[in-house]
């Protein structure tokens, strides 16, 4: 485990456990992600990688262990050696700082593309509408969808929807972006356009945790690669090393199937 103190890590997970009923999905996951770093998470389905990602912004409650984002303990407050669950408002405040992109986009179908991007800054942060509109338009321009602002999500292709979803998350000016298999629901020919946007984000210095099956993306963009299996981190390191020269049998077996 890396010996970084929680203060200079953007994300620090200590021995995170999570079970659904009697099924233990995470069995002690440790992770440190530094500011500006792109961390890719690889692993077979059922390895707990998506669950772990959802624990980071407290969409799932962890059963044991701690997760810190930018030094803040997620979901709880420690006072007098005792943990207090955070109220809905405080959890929401923590989540504002963390953008999340889902496998199935989850755009709001009853709002136009522009309204999707503007919704959270206007309603959650109560920023001025004109200012948010300019920023939203800029973000949509940046993901290449300036011309689709007034369309509804249902009128867009999967790749376009996912790019809107990225713009929607960025509109809250997050300090961390979580990507949950962002290209897995896309037609192969549309994967590239979404990865390009993500590469741009990475080169702008955004801290990102990306659960993905795109080995090429992980090798090219990732600073750190985590391989998870059976609810634990099996192997981690610079992507080239892990992909090129895996140390563990399970990593080798997985890579030989997907490469």
């Amino acid at each position: 485990m890396t010996n970084a103190s929680s203060s200079d890590a953007m994300v620090r997970a200590d021995n995170v456990h999570k079970s659904f009923g009697s099924l233990e999905v995470l069995k002690g996951v440790d992770l440190v992600v530094r500011p500006g770093e792109v961390c890719c998470v690889l692993g077979p389905s059922g390895s707990g990688k998506s669950t772990f990602l959802r624990c980071i912004n407290h969409l799932e409650k962890v059963n044991a262990g701690r997760i810190f984002v930018d030094g803040d303990l997620m979901g709880y407050r420690e006072r007098g050696g005792k943990l207090h669950e955070l109220g809905e408002k405080d959890v929401a405040k923590q989540r504002r700082e963390i953008g999340m992109v889902f496998q199935r986009f989850n755009l709001f179908p009853h709002m136009t593309v522009l309204q999707n991007v503007m919704e959270a800054p206007c309603r959650v942060k109560r920023e001025s509408k004109a200012e948010v509109r300019d920023r939203a338009a800029g973000l949509l321009e940046r993901v290449g969808l300036g011309a689709k602002m007034d369309n509804y999500p249902g009128q867009l292709s999967g790749g376009q929807q996912q790019r809107v979803a990225i713009a929607r998350a960025l509109a809250m000016r997050p300090k961390l972006m979580l990507f949950d298999e962002p290209t897995s629901a896309l037609d192969p020919e549309l994967v590239g356009e979404v990865l390009d946007v993500m590469k741009g984000l990475a080169s702008d210095g955004m801290t990102m945790i990306v659960v993905t099956h795109e080995i090429g993306f992980a090798r090219e963009v990732g600073d750190n690669l985590i391989f998870m299996d059976g609810g634990v981190v099996v192997e981690q390191g610079p992507p080239r090393d892990v992909i090129g020269n895996p140390q563990h049998e399970r990593t080798r077996a997985f890579l030989s199937k997907v490469l």
Binding site: L59, R96, M100, F102, F108, R123, V124, A169
Partner: peptide, 8 residues
């Protein structure tokens, strides 16, 4: 989920 993740 998407809405909650945005801090709503």
């Amino acid at each position: 989920e998407a809405a909650v993740a945005l801090g709503m």
